[in-house]
């Protein structure tokens, strides 16, 4: 356990090694969040509410998307796992008394914590000051939002790591990265919340694992789910996380035994 805490710390410190990236990061995120807010301002021009959802709700939703998706980078995870497997650098980690997937999780946690503190918080604060942001629906909803954020990070990591391990067989990191990117933009709720999806797509979208990346954390903050539903969907999210973790463990086991039997 101490080892993994140390990995997280190293991930944090590694990010710190490139100061210019912090500024580039803040700027990039500002543009993204502004763009999403601008889209909703245009959509809501002259309308106070659509399906009972106000423009203020939508701005908050756009900002919350920035909070949950701003720090973790699926592309980094996919690339790191994919390249380590393709170049054989993963051998170095097989030589140490550590579990490689847990090592990856620890590193990503450290790097995400860094981006969250130094890029996400300031960006969201700036945009919130300009356009205004609603507080959580209740204290309990606020607390649950924190739990949903953690779950969002875990599911995000697991999906990206699974795609990364798949690169071992498909030998193409880049296209997998693109595929995951499009899946996430559409199915996480980052661009458009599911309540604007036509049925049955809304129902389908809200039951697949990527929904826990953006849609559920934001819906909980906004009070779109009552406490009972919040807890229920938290439980379902945990179930998805467990399932994805099992898939990752199986794929990793197959990949690593193929490395040790066939030399990659």
């Amino acid at each position: 356990m101490i080892a993994y805490a140390a990995f997280a710390r190293s991930g944090f410190l590694t990010s710190l090694a490139y100061r210019n990236e912090v500024w580039a990061n803040i700027f990039g995120k500002l543009v993204q969040v502004f763009a999403r807010v601008a889209i909703w301002l245009a959509v809501y021009a002259g309308v106070t509410a659509v399906d009972g959802i106000s423009i203020s709700d939508m701005i908050t939703y756009a900002l919350l998307g920035g909070v949950v998706m701003g720090a973790t980078r699926y592309d980094r995870i996919v690339r790191q796992v994919g390249n380590a497997l393709k170049t054989g650098d993963v051998a170095i980690w097989l030589l140490k008394p550590v579990h490689y997937p847990l090592y990856l999780l620890a590193i990503e946690a450290g790097m995400s914590a860094y981006t969250f503190l130094l890029a996400v918080v300031p960006t969201i604060a700036i945009v919130a000051l300009i356009y205004g942001m609603q507080p959580p629906a209740s204290l309990l909803h606020g607390l649950m939002f924190v739990g949903f954020c953690a779950l969002s990070f875990i599911i995000h990591f697991l999906c990206a790591a699974i795609f990364g391990v798949l690169a071992f067989w498909l030998m193409t990191v880049f296209s997998l990265e693109w595929l995951l990117q499009s899946l996430i933009s559409l199915l996480s709720g980052l661009l458009i919340p599911f309540w604007f999806f036509p049925e049955p797509f809304g129902t389908i979208a809200s039951h697949q694992p990527l929904a826990w990346l953006v849609y559920y954390p934001s819906a909980v903050w906004l009070g779109r789910l009552d406490m009972g539903a919040t807890l229920l969907y938290f439980g379902i999210g945990l179930g998805w996380a467990g399932l994805l973790a099992t898939v990752l463990a199986l794929l990793w086991h197959r990949a690593s035994s193929r490395i040790t039997v066939q030399g990659g």
């Binding site: 101490i2 080892a3 140390a6 190293s10 008394p97 550590v98």
Partner: peptide
């Protein structure tokens, strides 16, 4: 830093 990490791993 790599050395201290190594200390934790082992």
């Amino acid at each position: 830093d790599s050395f201290t990490l190594h200390q934790r791993i082992y």
